[in-house]
């Protein structure tokens, strides 16, 4: 990779860095409890909770850091944080 002068960096290049490896707890979304309100997506600091075609939400585990904000904020308690690797 050659250096671009001016310390210019390409937009959205951080996508190369898969922060999913940081996670020790993993959010698991229970669609049965979900009201499709979208609050989880709104407050995910990584911006990686997406709406599925059926209206439910799922995170992109490649980037999810397992912070647990989604689970904490979900009004329906539809997200469970489970220990990674279980």
């Amino acid at each position: 990779m050659k250096l671009v002068i001016k310390t210019t960096a390409k937009p959205k290049g951080t996508r190369a860095n898969k922060t999913g490896t940081w996670r020790s707890f993993m959010p698991v979304f229970d669609h049965k409890l979900c009201s499709k309100c979208g609050i989880c997506a709104m407050y995910c600091p990584e911006g990686i909770i997406f709406k599925l075609e059926n209206g439910y939400f799922e995170p992109d585990y490649d980037y999810c850091k397992g912070c647990g904000i989604c689970a904490n904020e979900c009004p329906k308690k539809a997200i469970l944080m489970v220990l990674e690797g279980k």
């Binding site: 951080t14 600091p45 992109d60 912070c67």
Partner: peptide, 11 residues
């Protein structure tokens, strides 16, 4: 704001 940034979990 793309993911992959190095902010703390829950930043």
């Amino acid at each position: 704001l793309a993911p992959g940034h190095r902010g703390c979990a829950g930043c």
